[in-house]
Write a protein that binds this DNA or RNA. Structure first.
Lengths: 219, 219
DNA sequence: GCAATAGTACACCCATCGGTGCATTAGTAC
DNA sequence: GTACTAATGCACCGATGGGTGTACTATTGC
């Protein structure tokens, strides 16, 4: 009756068979969840797609819900990596104003990525069933990015480039000027008429321009 | 075998029993769908809540999907009414700048309303299952409001109050400065820590201020 | 009061799906 | 090679849920 692995750390010893099964199941489940949602994904589907027996899924993950949570954990980690990179980019920049434009483009590209949009749809749609997960995602992904941006705004204000009073508000203004409308639209329109990379970049630029008109320190 | 009513217009003759059943079922279904989503709502639930037999639901609506679509149609109508009112408000205004502030407050209040947020969650979550419905909602509700706003922006520009180049872009900037961040957050956080009416109003005001700094005609 | 129609209760069908048990096979560590 | 453990296949359970058929009762229009 093989069940939970011995209670060890993250990189504990793993039978290569288990390691492989874990990986292949997670990949299949991730795909399926992102495309068809939680209820739209059956464990049989996942097992078939991963070319693994259903029993193996249950031996390793215990339940559909735990499998789902593991997938989201991985997504959280990705989001946090992005936030960290963005933070570094902004803090280490020579020309901070320039860095803002770079950040805007990166932010747009990331947030409009198909997988991220699907993840948002998934979590928003399941917010009632998994309130903690949705909230946690908000806190650790968009919320965290907002915090990092706010820190940057304060820095820019100290250096006299910007003049922001409420940094959190300003960073939200920044982000939503840049990607608010296309993101909102993308959430509702699946697989269709997504703005091109060029258009998104143009939007990022106009967004930054509007932001700077509103928040640049006139000296 | 009572089935579809005779193929007549919208306000065709209806047996009062049918009218009552329709209304009470729609109300119950609406509540349940908005709170638990499409798959989270069973026809038995709806029938029980409406104090009506399951058979009646099927006699009148034919299928769960058709029931769902009727409910969304009603929601679309509500959204369009809001858009129309907002349009009138902006077009008939004496002081257009002032009207923008009013519009901002109204927009925030409407979009952050619990039922609307739930409707958005529902449609976004089911965008994969009902792509046309989600797209239609976007077009007829937020999209339409954006168009009306854009018309107003053009008018304001002609009157020399604003200076906008791309009116659609400017109206999106306006809307998302005002309610982008709180809406995004609300989508992920269910029943919790929603900003107060006062806070939302303050946000609307700061949003308009930022917008005017960015877009007011400096003459 | 009467015919027509709507509503009800209830039993039922069938598919799906999360999850389990188990006997058998295959891969792994030493 | 041997002892162990993971993986498989498959039958199975129980619950849920969309949808139907039907015999019976309650309303409604006239």
């Amino acid at each position: 009756m093989p069940q939970a692995p011995p209670p060890a750390g993250d990189d504990a010893w793993l039978d290569p068979r288990v390691a492989r099964s874990r990986a292949v199941i997670l990949a299949a489940a991730s795909e399926h969840f992102l495309h068809h949602g939680y209820v739209g994904t059956s464990v049989d589907d996942v097992a078939a797609r991963a070319r693994v027996s259903k029993r193996t899924v249950y031996n390793i993950f215990g339940s559909k819900e735990r499998l789902f949570r593991e997938i989201l954990d991985a997504a959280f980690a990705t989001a946090e990596r992005f936030a960290r990179q963005t933070a570094a980019l902004l803090i280490d920049a020579d020309d901070l104003e320039d860095a803002l434009v770079t950040a805007a483009v990166r932010l747009t590209r990331t947030v409009m990525d198909d997988r991220i949009v699907r993840l948002r749809r998934l979590l928003i749609g399941e917010a009632e069933r998994f309130p903690e997960l949705a909230r946690e995602y908000y806190r650790r992904a968009p919320g965290h990015v907002m915090e990092v941006l706010a820190d940057t705004m304060r820095l820019l204000t100290e250096r006299g480039v910007l003049r922001v009073d409420d940094a959190r508000l300003a960073s939200e203004h920044f982000a939503f000027l840049v990607m608010g409308a296309p993101l909102d639209r993308a959430l509702f329109t699946v697989d269709d008429s997504r703005p091109s990379a060029d258009e998104l970049e143009a939007r990022a630029t106009s967004g930054v321009e509007a932001f700077l008109r509103a928040y640049r320190d006139p000296r």
